[in-house]
């Protein structure tokens, strides 16, 4: 076990965990930030996507010991009151069905738009291809990203 001071959603949070513990479980079990979801554990589904210094990362493959001073943002910290343009666009297009993968989808989309505010269809496909949606909301996700892109 080891002590870590993590910068999460703009606040310093201390945890005492095994250094190999993935950030996914630090967030979910130790910090009660359960918006980040467990899907596959091997970085194949994107449900656990968070931002590390603005880049989309799969938190299930990110050991807490590798985070250091990096700024971590989770779905809970993407905006103060759920009004990030991507979140708003998701509401406007009523994207979710079961909703389980959507936090990861939103985090991937927000990271894409931060780096590329006017993505093409191919840019969207490339940035989002690591995020599975079993309900099949892909066409709505693409439409919502385009709406968000206009409202940035």
């Amino acid at each position: 076990m080891a002590l870590y001071n993590l910068n999460i959603n703009g606040k310093t949070q201390q945890v005492d965990v095994d250094p190999n513990t993935p950030m996914l479980w630090v967030l979910r079990d130790h910090l009660d930030l359960v918006g980040t979801k467990f899907g596959c554990g091997i970085a194949q589904c994107g449900a656990c996507t968070i931002h590390m210094d603005g880049n989309a990362m799969r938190s299930c493959q990110l050991p807490v010991s590798s985070v250091g001073d990096s700024k971590i943002t989770t779905i809970e910290g993407l905006s103060e009151s759920g009004d990030h343009p991507v979140q708003q666009a998701w509401m406007e297009h009523d994207v979710p069905q079961c909703g389980y993968c959507q936090a990861g989808q939103i985090m991937s989309a927000a990271a894409l738009l931060a780096q590329n505010p006017n993505p093409s269809d191919t840019d969207i496909d490339n940035a989002m291809n690591g995020n599975l949606c079993r309900c099949g909301t892909y066409t709505r996700i693409k439409a919502a990203i385009k709406t968000a892109s206009q409202n940035l």
Partner: peptide
């Protein structure tokens, strides 16, 4: 709209 929409997009426990 989905009555859980806001909770889903903000990562609330559901």
């Amino acid at each position: 709209r989905n009555v859980d929409g806001q909770k889903i997009v903000t990562g609330k426990p559901l």
